[in-house]
Every structure is written in C-alpha cells, then in structure tokens.
Amino acid sequence: MTIDLTETTTGAINDALRQARLRLGGVASGMVLTLVIVTDEGAQYDAVRAASGAGRQHPCRILVVIIRRPGERSRLDAEIRVGETSPGETVLLRMYGPLGQHADSVVAPLLLPDTPVVTWWPGAPPAVPSENPMGALAQRRITDAASADVPRDALAALAAGYQPGDTDLSWTRATPWRSLLAATMDQPSGAVTGGTVSAEAGNPTADLIAAWLSHGYRVPFAVEPSTGPGITEVSFATADGEIAISRPDGRVAQLRRPGQPERRVALHRRETTELLEEELRRLDPDEVYAEALAELRPR
C-alpha cells in the first residue's frame, strides 16, 4: 500500500509506518538494516528499483532523501510504500527549502533501532563521504565513482578522504573479475613481472583492478584504453609467458595460459541490484578495497 503524507513530520511518518505494519499483519518484522539513498527526483526511480530488488535478499527500511527547490519555505512530504515490491518498507522523503540543509534531522528519527545503517549515493560521490551529514549517520557508505564526470578524479578524491566503512560500486563491479583472476592464479605459474588491464576509457573499475593487482604482486600493472564494453582484458607477464583473460563481448571470457588449451567461462556484467546485494552482505570495513584505493591516492 502507498500512503502519501504532505507537509508532515517524522512523528507522523513513524505512526503511519506502524499502522501500515499492523494492517498488513506484521510484515517486515525481520528487517536487517536501514538503507538511506541520497538522490534527486530524476534518478530516484532507478535507485529505488535497484534497492527494492536488493531488499528481497536483505529486508530493509529504505529511506530515499530527495532535496527539492531550496528557494521555497521548509516543508517535508513523505510517500510511504509498504508490502509492495520488497518485504521491507520504503519511504520517499522530499525536502523543500532550508530543510534540505538539515536532512539528517529528518532521517535520524526514522532509522530502525538495533540494526546497521547504510547510505548510498547513486549519483556523483560527495567530497568526503564520512563527513557528509548523511554519511555520518551510517556504518557503511556506498559511493559510485562511475557516476562522476571524471571517474578517475573521483576515485582519487575518495582515496584521499577514505575512512573505514567507505566502499564504491566500481569496486563491487570488480568482484567477478577479481574472483576469476584469483582462481586463475591459484594454479602454479612463473613469477609475475607485470601486466595490463584493458578497458573502455574512464572505467574506474579497471583502475581499481590494476591497483589491486599492483598491490598484490608489488609490480606495476598498466591500464590501457580499449573499445570496451567495460573491461576487455587482464594479462599477466610471467617468467613462463603470458597469462591472459579476455572478454571482448562483455559476456564470455577466454582464459589463455602457456602450454594449456584455451578455456572459456561466463563472465557477466551485473545489474545495480546485484551490486547492492553484494554490498549489503557484509557491513564491516573492506580492508582490501582500502589498500587498492590507497594505490590511487594522488602523490
């Protein structure tokens, strides 16, 4: 059901949520976290859709913060959705006027007790996520460098302002690649002397994978532009010859290594919902990301 509250308060929103829950027979008793989405009117539909999908795996309260028309007088409109697309609750909070500068005062009373808070910025990342008022509420802060105008600069800024609990969807996008690379290098090979990551220009995931590999092997991995889609190849120069995984079509990867038959393996690009699902699975600081990101810090 959807409940629209105009010119409302957080107290009224909490009451409406409680009553909706009672009327639907106590759904959503097992919500595991609060997900705060900071977005704008144009991007909110896609973001809420992705989050509701992830909410099927991680039942949660989704609070969508939309700042509108800062010039008007202060006003809070709420749109409550319960028992529709996901097992949890979704509240769209539209804040007008100066209230937009104090969004945390609206969000804080609506956070679920006893459970973690995650903030997600689907658009360009804030300068320092942990110092942003919406980020300060959360244990886990999800940014997406790929949404920035210049993703590489955005990653560098995130690296400079990193605090434990920060994470970025361009790192999440790297997981299937990293998983395949790690599995490939489980097999004995000659010493790794360097390598390259080829990707569409401006792909922050490629930067992070190269940084992760450089950090792991203590040898430089270069990022080279290709025509895409996404990342098209990762290769290792080893003492025994080249080991390479290439994925020209964004779907199936070929694995080549010296003295062995070429093998193929499915390697899909993933939807935002899947990325969020992975992010919400663990809420402790991601130290491996921190180390890869540190390699990208401006020197």
Partner: peptide, 22 residues
C-alpha cells in the same frame, strides 16, 4: 604444493571459494 597466491587474502570476503580445475 601450490605457491601462495598474493591475490588470495583471508580478509577479502567478496571473492568466493572457487574449485580448481577438475
């Protein structure tokens, strides 16, 4: 014996356990 793989980090909880060739 397999040589230790620098890409395997016990703190890395995102990378799943994958079976070797078989």
């Amino acid at each position: 014996m397999t040589v230790s793989n620098p890409l395997r980090d016990p703190r890395d909880r995102r990378i799943p356990r994958v079976a070797g060739p078989c």
